[in-house]
Amino acid sequence: MAFLKTLAVATVMTATAASALGTASAQETSKLQQVLDRGYLVLGTGSTNPPWHFVDSDNKLKGFDVDMGRLVAKALFGDPEKIEYVQQSGDARIPNLVTDKVDMACQFMTVTAERAQQIEFTIPYYREGVGLLLMANGDYADYDALKEGGDDVTVAVLQNVYAEEMVRAALPEAEVDQYDSVDLMYQALNSGRAQAAATDQSALRWFMVQNPDRYTDAGYAWNPQSYSCGVKPGDQRWLNFVNTVLHEGMTGVEFPFYAESFKTWFGEELETPKIGFPVEYK
């Protein structure tokens, strides 16, 4: 019994000492210095969701999330290739940050208040929403035509608890057909069983990039949500650095890098930020 007690006390003491050591070192050196000393960035992202993060046919990790990581690596080392990728599942985003498995995570993470209590978000680098994909030569030209179509219109959507409610928010009278997989949803649109497919704006644009001139965007998007990178809480220096890099990517010296990536994955040419008064205060 005495042995067990000693063991228990020893374990607790070691754990306390270890955590005390952890906080002390975090205060002394920022993650920024650690990453610079290490010589490469450890980026947590996924590998199964184009156009965000996926393995291309040349066996390389690519996508918009990956490019945001490359932007940060470029800012750190002048070389966007200096990254070690941790290919994580969506569930692993927060645990891997909190346990220091990754320096930062860029993995189409929706900013929510619940998550913000566990990690710190950077500024957003994309605003996701739901959009409607139409056939370019179909009966309905745009959102207004779909709305006038009333219950003649069938909308294909990926199966989801909120799918019906989500479509109704934009097209109150339309029929909603739910499908188990993305390929079946697009198939329904191709075969004319549905007149529109409701899906994430990013997925929709990526599909249009891959199949030029075949489809068109109905021009209406709703359900806004912000995508941000995440960092471990409590390191303001590192958070500020990543924020600065993302901010200058969207508005400053690295705008060509950001715009090039945006064009590649979403097929849209961005306008150069207006010179003069900073756009973000308008």
Binding site: S47, F54, Q87, D91, A92, D183, Y186
Partner: peptide, 21 residues
């Protein structure tokens, strides 16, 4: 699940690109 790219995850990566689930 913890990000080891073994056969299943490698397969899922191919599926996400090709939609041939």
């Amino acid at each position: 699940i913890i990000g080891v790219v073994e056969l299943l995850l490698a397969t899922q990566q191919v599926i996400s690109r090709t939609y041939l689930s």
